[in-house]
Amino acid sequence: MKIAVASGKGGTGKSTFSVALALANRDRARLVDCDVEEPNAHLFLRGGESTSTPVWASVPEVDASLCDACGKCTSFCQYNALALAGSAGLMVFPELCHDCGGCILVCPNKALSERKVLRGTIESRVIDGTLELVTGRLEVGSPSAPTVIRAAIENPPALRRRVTIFDAPPGTACSFASCVHQADHCVLVTDPTPFGLHDLDLAIEAIQGMSKPFSVVINRSNGDDDLASRHCRRRGIPVLMRIPERREIAECYSNGGSLLDADPSMGERLRALLDDLHFHVSGGPIL
């Protein structure tokens, strides 16, 4: 089973929740940090030896002796990454290239070949021998977050676990979609503020567009009558859990601690939560 933990708005506690969920279920779940623009889970899950794999993309390279400046590649490229500079021939702009490979395929003279450029890295670690964390990290200035997210999700598991948790990128755009798309169920973390609810609705619209089942976790909740709880009740959205608004949780987080450090009783609740999700997705217990 694959669970994506997402949030329309950033800063709602999405990573805090996914780290705690993974920690409480370390015997049966692994965690993949798909927030490749700003991966954070590793800041709370330290230790273990790391294996790092580069994520390469292929950008075109021109062999000037074969190119007859026919212009097929420049008119094909949707990203304007190629240009004909008159008699000086073909120019390539790798920073605009989305690595689709189309130009190489359309070139009738085989004048274009692939050159590898680094788009990101995937780092895999096993913490205390039991919890696997995979972190995708986008190169600064690189345009291709979805490529790195895919590589993180497809990275071969170091441990056999029934459940994989994706810490999804915030927002509702292409990065978010390319992560949630791969999951069986999406857990949306929100906070009970007008910004939080507005962005929760956007995320729900995106998820419904992908026909994915979803549920909600309310962070910094002031009880079952807060803004978010009322909102979810009105819309008939299942609320899995409420994490109370407490300054000691904020301080514990600011010192690099997890939700479980701030409130040890959270462990049991997070195990029960994963059991429920598994029942919901697969119709049976986690075996």
Partner: peptide, 13 residues
């Protein structure tokens, strides 16, 4: 096709 990047490769070939 879902989540299309809009590169046009499949359309062309």
């Amino acid at each position: 096709i879902s989540n299309c990047e809009g590169c046009g490769v499949c359309v062309e070939f």
